[in-house]
């Protein structure tokens, strides 16, 4: 048993060390995998803010993941074809710009979905967010202007000033830096009055209401930040794959983001990071075992839910769950 703080640093350093090792050994694919894990981790950290801190079990975060991806895809398409968006806005492939658009779009989507969904709670909230995610999915599939089900290919990955994003090490570094920033942001939120109030709302909404704070507005704020972070992950994912499609909106993506969080440990800062790392590793290792490897993934998930509450982080660290 190790203290969670030490564990957190070990995970962070471990991912970085893995990538540097991959670079040293010339294993480009490991770098790609590390970037994929880092991006999934960002999406998980985003969901964790709503799920762990806010107690909002969203089964529709694929909506924000997809919105982020489509922001990048749409801007890139217009840049590739030199046709301005709405005849006004030039397309672009500059990451700082596309990411900003993704974040804003994700926040807006979360504001609308959140405002409606937060009228309910518990099981309703789960099913409603799931249904909204599907609504985005069907919209994207029928939206033929941007490729419909075929999605959009981004022929050249977006650029970032001072970096060669086509170099796998640079792209991993970028994803890792974003992950680190997002983790710092979440830790800051955690310790801020807002974070404390959010925790209090999760435990006892009535008590918070008596001191004059609206639980719903607090939750909505958390949901919006959560959606924005997940949209940022979607933007990076689009750049990683150089491709976006309605599959980013599918409900299995929502399920997977949720798996990162639970696998790693709900409401723990590094929980989603651990979960994403383990998921990417499993996908890689189990995928080759048999045609029916999903059965084993399912069994493993079941065992974790039944016997390892608190996820991997909970099992390996001795500190009690926050909050």
């Amino acid at each position: 048993m190790i203290p969670e703080r030490v564990f957190n640093w070990a995970v962070w350093g471990g991912l970085l060390a893995f990538a540097l090792l991959a670079e040293a050994l010339g294993e480009t694919y490991w770098l790609t995998l590390a970037a994929r894990a880092a991006i999934f981790a960002i999406a998980g950290v985003g969901l964790n803010l709503a799920l762990g801190n806010g107690g909002l079990i969203s089964f529709g975060h694929a909506a924000f993941f997809g919105v982020g991806g489509y922001a990048v895809g749409i801007l890139a398409t217009h840049a590739q074809t030199y046709t301005p968006l709405f005849g006004l806005i030039e397309g672009t492939q500059s990451m700082p710009v596309t990411w900003s658009v993704a974040i804003v779009a994700g926040a807006l989507a979360a504001l609308v979905i959140g405002a409606l969904s937060l009228r309910t709670s518990g099981a309703y909230f789960i099913m409603i967010t799931l249904a909204f995610g599907q609504m985005f999915y069907y919209f994207a599939v029928t939206w033929s202007a941007y490729g419909g089900e075929d999605g959009m290919s981004i022929y050249v990955r977006g650029g970032f000033p001072g970096l060669n994003t086509l170099d796998p090490l640079h792209f991993f570094g970028l994803s890792f830096a974003v992950l680190t920033l997002v983790l710092l942001l979440v830790r800051m939120i955690d310790r801020s009055p807002f974070g404390l109030a959010l925790n209090a709302v999760r435990q006892s909404p009535a008590r918070v209401e008596t001191v004059g704070i609206s639980p719903r507005r607090l939750r909505l704020a958390a949901f919006v930040v959560s959606g924005a972070i997940t949209a940022l992950a979607g933007a990076l994912f689009a750049d990683l794959n150089r491709y976006v499609s309605p599959a980013m909106f599918s409900w299995t993506i929502s399920g997977e983001i949720m798996i990162f969080v639970i696998l790693g440990g709900v409401a723990r800062l590094m929980g989603p990071v651990v979960g994403a790392l383990v998921f990417v590793a499993l996908e890689e290792l189990l995928g080759g075992l048999s045609d029916y490897w999903h059965i084993w993934l399912g069994v493993l998930l079941l065992l974790i839910v039944l016997f390892a509450r608190g996820g991997i982080t909970g099992a390996l660290t001795r500190e009690a769950r926050r909050g």
Binding site: E149, G151, S153, N241, Y243, S245, A247
Partner: peptide, 9 residues
């Protein structure tokens, strides 16, 4: 749709 994701790159 999968071909469009893989083939160009």
């Amino acid at each position: 749709n999968l071909a469009m994701a893989v083939v160009p790159s």
